[in-house]
């Protein structure tokens, strides 16, 4: 479901994305895995949204540029630009509400 992006691809990916969500994660972060499950549930009910993931420890440029020091951080992309960034955990209901609020 997730397309993995990195320092070399994140700018173009964001610019080319109409409606997407990027999760910036750390490998040893258990909560990032929980948040990925939330995104998987969200994806089932939201056709047309593209999902990306980025290892924020291995991609320091993107991490700094996207203000994704915390893990997990979600970056919401709309019409080729970042519409919102949110760190922390959400359940599927909160995720849906937040997604709608930043449209």
């Amino acid at each position: 479901m997730f397309t993995t992006i990195d320092d070399s691809t994140y700018k173009n990916t964001i610019a080319d994305t109409k409606d997407g969500i990027l999760i910036c994660f750390k490998k040893q972060c258990p909560h990032c895995k929980n948040m990925e499950k939330v995104l998987e549930k969200f994806a089932k009910k939201n056709d047309g949204v593209t999902f990306y993931k980025l290892d924020s420890e291995e991609n320091p440029e993107a991490r700094d540029e996207l203000s994704a020091e915390r893990a997990p951080t979600l970056v919401f992309i709309k019409e080729g630009a970042i519409s919102a960034t949110k760190a922390g955990l959400m359940n599927p209901k909160e995720m849906t509400a937040y997604y709608r609020s930043v449209q």
Binding site: A71, A87, G88, L89
Partner: peptide, 9 residues
């Protein structure tokens, strides 16, 4: 409190 350092909550 939702156990993510620096969370906004």
């Amino acid at each position: 409190v939702d156990c993510v350092a620096g969370s906004e909550k």
